[in-house]
Design a protein around this nucleic acid. Structure first.
Lengths: 330, 330
DNA sequence: CTGAAAGCGCTTACAG
DNA sequence: CTGAAAGCGCTTACAG
């Protein structure tokens, strides 16, 4: 069965293809009687306009592009879920693109721009500042609306949706300190992410305000690797508090601490900065700063629709609230 | 900066647009000298053909569509990663679509087909048989190549990539039995997935062959909910073995068993049927049947490229090997 | 309110 | 080997 085209509908309804097009795009411009007739044929034939042809003719593809580094991370898939839910609600199709470590950024962006998406959600949190400049520059040259989604970039005033990770980490660090804990570590990743950098800043500020030395331990996101790091770490360092940038890192630390005879939270209290499913599957369960990643995705997508439709935007840089979820590990 | 078009390149290189097009699509058909001149201009201008226009003219969008139920599940994001990695290698763009519980299937499929993808990877494992018939029927009517990816469907001979979950579960169940365990439960989900159904069949066969009564406990995928179920379960049932269709369910069970004073694996041995990151973050670590979901995604995508390019396919239904990963929980 | 026509940016037979 | 022209399936001023 060949796909039915606008010509088939026009023929069967006894009108021109222009009228069929109007029925779909500007129904108020066509006589009610004609409209109903056309609508009936559309239904009968199960007609849906070819999205590619429509995209070429109208210069609107009703498709957005998502640019990310790695799909498999838990936070990314949460972001994705939020984005796709809202995209669907607004009838946008979603194309996904990855920019990996070894990719040529300029070329990758050219590929993406050639895809003619109406807007871009940028989720890649692993680029250095110069690369971000390049990316944003190319997107702006192509005049494509863009929203940064859980990514910090202090260049020009690019729309973004984030959480105040700095404040969140500052606050939770102060909690540790007020409990009298003296050796509170921030456990972060070896790879530098803009988001984790903000966590570092908040942590450092709280420690310094309390006259304590900030102590950062960087490890791998890979559990096999970081558990070995932690084993070594526990042998050599005094620690009574850990704030981990990722929940999986926190859980890995808890497991190793307990294997080494420490009690959690009595000897060492642990907090994760995400609140993913890992937190509930930990034993003891993991106290978290809940950073609502699904919401970041959903709000980003909603914000992007406004830019794509040239609607008024009251706030280009959205900061979503977080909350602390008390469980057993602190 | 307006996007540069094929006309810009043609003008600057002093050739017709047809020649530019040939340089990109059939370079062997153009004189080496001309070709180099055009290539140089393309590079200078950073030209990339408009994917939409190309899609309309050639009837090939070099885009595939992924249809799934829910992005956020760990197995789905692994599948996605495998797919996207290979799609990128073969220069295919990727569009993602979800079909949720409340969506009209026929209409959802029409939307997807209207997007003019060159091929479809079908990941939605939650449809009943009649709905699958509908979906497959529409895809075939539209003559779009499709590969089922971690989904079982026993209709016509649709290409698919799977694991022999039935055999894997059969085998692991026999292991429990040979250890002398008498009360081995299969813990599955309340929602019916084709994949989990195969696990059920394998489990049941092994139990029956050993003259044991198959015992299935169905619970929620939500950890908050299933931990309560497990608490109740442990009060009322005798159990010395658990095979869980998902790792997170296995871990949740382990936690509850230990809280109830049971030793794992001495009193109750536990196995997960995925081998995700949860398995390593569990304490004790979780023994698993490793079902290589990333590979399913990658192989599916590779297979789909063959269909899209009309290449010879030796095996339409691929079954990938699994292996058992021994850890502490059994 | 409706239709004829141009055009979106490409690809691809068809001539030469 | 190269160019002129038709066409992919739509949208959208422009007339009427």
């Amino acid at each position: 069965m060949a796909n039915t085209t606008i010509y088939d509908v026009a023929g069967k309804a006894g009108v021109s293809l222009a009228t069929v097009s109007r029925v779909m795009n500007n129904p108020e411009k066509v006589n009610a009687e004609t409209r109903d007739r056309v609508l009936k044929v559309i239904k009968e034939l199960g007609y849906r306009p070819n999205a590619i042809a429509r995209g070429l003719a109208s210069r609107k593809t009703t498709t957005i592009g998502i640019i990310m580094a790695d799909i498999s991370r838990a936070s990314t898939s949460q972001l994705l879920t939020g984005i796709v839910d809202i995209a669907k609600k607004y009838d946008y199709a979603v194309k996904i693109f990855t920019i990996g470590e070894n990719d040529d950024i300029r070329e990758s962006m050219r590929v993406i721009i050639a895809e003619q998406v109406d807007g871009i959600l940028f989720l890649n949190d692993e680029l250095v500042h110069d690369d971000m400049d390049l990316v944003i520059g190319q997107i702006q040259d192509a005049q494509i609306p863009v929203v940064l989604c859980n990514v910090f970039y202090d260049g020009t005033n690019i729309p973004s949706v984030n959480i105040d990770y700095e404040k969140a980490t500052y606050e939770i660090t102060k909690e540790f300190i007020s409990e009298g804990r003296k050796n509170v570590y921030l456990v972060s990743t070896v790879r530098r992410y803009s988001v984790n950098n903000h966590k570092l800043i908040g942590y450092t500020r709280a420690m310094e305000e309390a006259g304590l030395e900030p102590m950062v331990f960087r490890t791998s996101g890979d559990v096999q690797i970081n558990s070995l790091h932690f084993e070594e770490f526990l042998k050599t360092k005094k620690v009574d508090g850990v704030i981990a940038v990722r929940d999986s890192i926190a859980v890995s630390f808890i497991n190793m601490a307990i294997k080494n005879g420490l009690r959690v939270p009595e000897d060492v209290a642990v907090v994760g900065l995400q609140n993913t499913k890992y937190a509930i599957l930990s034993r003891p369960t993991l106290t978290c700063v809940d950073t609502p990643v699904y919401d970041i995705g959903a709000v980003s997508m909603r914000l992007l629709t406004k830019y794509m439709k040239n609607e008024e935007v009251s706030e280009a840089r959205v900061v979503l609230p977080y909350r602390i979820v008390k469980r057993e590990s602190k």
